[in-house]
């Protein structure tokens, strides 16, 4: 499953970097993840409940931030395991400065699915990818707006 997208935010590139490096934010924007628990440097244990259409499953797994290149890029490596199947994803995140108050986040990556969801979910996978992408950007947007106001 390919996941890619771009979105502009009304914060500077360095601000966006800082926001994204905050585990709470990462937890908020990673689809389904309710909690990130620090395991080591840039390595987190995740607990998530994903509900997409008829599929509802509790996933547990790991999220790791690698290849950090402040403030312009990093990669998220994720493993999510569940009874109905697993997802292993690697997504490159690129922050582009547009001007001093605006930046864009571009991500591109691939999630390898296995197990039952890989065998039975093909029909709607591109829909799932779209939902995930939208969720990431809208959660991030919401977080930014919330914190600007605060």
């Amino acid at each position: 499953m390919i996941v890619e997208g771009t979105h502009e935010f009304n914060v500077s590139a360095t601000e966006l970097w800082t926001i994204l490096m905050d585990p709470e934010v990462l937890a908020k924007i990673t689809p389904g993840v309710s909690k990130l628990e620090l395991l080591g440097e840039d390595l987190y244990k995740t607990v998530s409940e994903i509900k997409i259409g008829p599929v509802k499953g509790a996933f547990k797994g790991k999220l790791e931030v690698i290849d950090k290149n402040e403030p312009s890029s990093f990669t998220i490596q994720m493993e999510q395991l569940s009874k109905i199947g697993n997802a292993h994803a690697k997504v490159e995140m690129n922050i582009l400065s547009l001007d001093e108050n605006r930046s864009s986040l571009e991500f591109a990556g691939k999630a390898n699915l296995s197990g039952l969801i890989a065998r039975t979910g093909q029909r709607v996978l591109s829909g799932v990818a779209n939902v995930i992408i939208k969720e990431v950007f809208s959660s991030l947007e919401a977080h930014i707006i919330e914190n600007k106001i605060a």
């Binding site: 008829p54 509802k56 009874k83 109905i84 039952l116």
Partner: peptide, 14 residues
């Protein structure tokens, strides 16, 4: 006919 197939595959466990 949408729900029971998902239950059988255990994709959904209400």
């Amino acid at each position: 006919h949408s729900l029971i197939p998902a239950l059988k595959l255990r994709l959904n466990n209400p």
